[in-house]
Design a protein around this nucleic acid. Structure first.
Lengths: 201, 201
DNA sequence: CAGACAATTGACCGGCCGGCCAGTTAGCGC
DNA sequence: GCGCTAACTGGCCGGCCGGTCAATTGTCTG
């Protein structure tokens, strides 16, 4: 609920609006967000939102684009600093991804909202990312360090989906009897996953 | 868009409203549903909805309760007809769960909406279900047919979450490069999962 | 058949939603 | 300094949202 301050700095204003919008959209989803509340919490007038973004729908698109771009650059960076293919590196990639989602709960919710919308417009960047990951898995398979009878894309999908769902549905299963902490769950998942992907001797 | 027909049968009317509401809520989520549209598609007047359910919020609760009850009884039935604990049975449980979600896409979306709402009110029945599943895993572990260094609840969680996310985020990853069909993915998941949960010789 | 009561209707309400517009103000090139 | 453009404002609008209510109709009980 920041004060109304004329900045006369369009870039800053846009960011203020985007930040406030992201917070609200992530929390409530598109249709439950009221432009009036959003304006109040961004410290601008409703008209200013329309001035900079045109419509509620376009603002939502802008929020998603910005967030996904952040996500993809972060992931790409993680992927690029990965070294020589081997099983241990797969393990640490899973850990890194898990921790990334833990530290960016907004991203997780944003993904969830867009999935429910049936939105698949982020596919360009995403395909690139998955493609790179799968290629990395394929190379590791070729060296005999991962079992070769599994589709590399599925390997990526399985750990991505498990991590995502863990945080997306946290409220649902955190009270399940016997359910452990983030760390305990990740450890058990890795036991199964890593044991499942390396070749049997 | 059914016709307006006076039934004078309150039970039937309630069901008609619940059915139409479930369809719309599943599709659009709570706040994007307009009571007027809902009334039209149920073939009743808006007032009749209020008469039978009180408010939009209460109707939403009723829809969730009915759907979850269906889900839980279906799951409980599957669980109860499971026989003697062994690894092969775990495999077929995963397949059964996967197929259940494939055939009930509405349930998947309903879960997703409630997760985003932070709703955890279905926990009573759910805990019972997970508890039974985890106990079954524990017994199988005890017989030495599953590795014992993994929290039984986590075993359940991992396959439930993977299956759920597969369908929940279908629109997102179905275009990923190299991604296979439902069956192909399930098969690869089972390869990893089953290999990961059985003890190494 | 009376009369009680629930099912059902349509007209209606206050409120507020997203969006628009006429006007004011500040910054920036000249 | 001057004017042009874009940032920004406040007020307003049409529409429709969820919800209410008085009246009507059908059904069941005694």
């Amino acid at each position: 609920m920041s004060q109304r301050i004329q900045t006369r700095d369009p870039e800053l204003t846009r960011t203020r609006i985007l930040d406030a919008a992201e917070t609200l959209f992530v929390e409530l989803g598109f249709s439950a967000v009221k432009l009036s509340a959003l304006a109040r919490s961004a410290g601008v007038t409703k008209s200013l939102i329309h001035h900079h973004f045109g419509s509620k729908e376009q603002l939502w698109e802008a929020v998603k684009n910005r967030a996904f771009e952040r996500y993809f650059t972060a992931q790409m960076a993680m992927l690029e600093e990965a070294g020589e293919p081997n099983a241990e590196l797969l393990r640490s990639s899973v850990v890194a991804y898990f921790n990334f989602l833990r530290d960016n709960p907004g991203v997780v919710r944003l993904f969830a909202w867009t999935h429910l919308e049936g939105d698949s417009h982020c596919s360009d960047l995403d395909n690139q990312l998955v493609g790179a990951g799968a290629e990395w898995v394929r190379q590791t398979q070729e060296r005999g360090l991962l079992r070769q009878d599994i589709n590399p894309t599925h390997v990526i999908a399985i750990f991505v989906m498990t991590c995502t769902q863990w945080f997306e549905a946290k409220c649902h299963h955190e009270n399940w009897p016997g359910m452990g902490s983030d760390e305990a769950f990740l450890e058990d998942f890795l036991k199964i996953f890593m044991e499942g992907v390396v070749p049997r001797e």
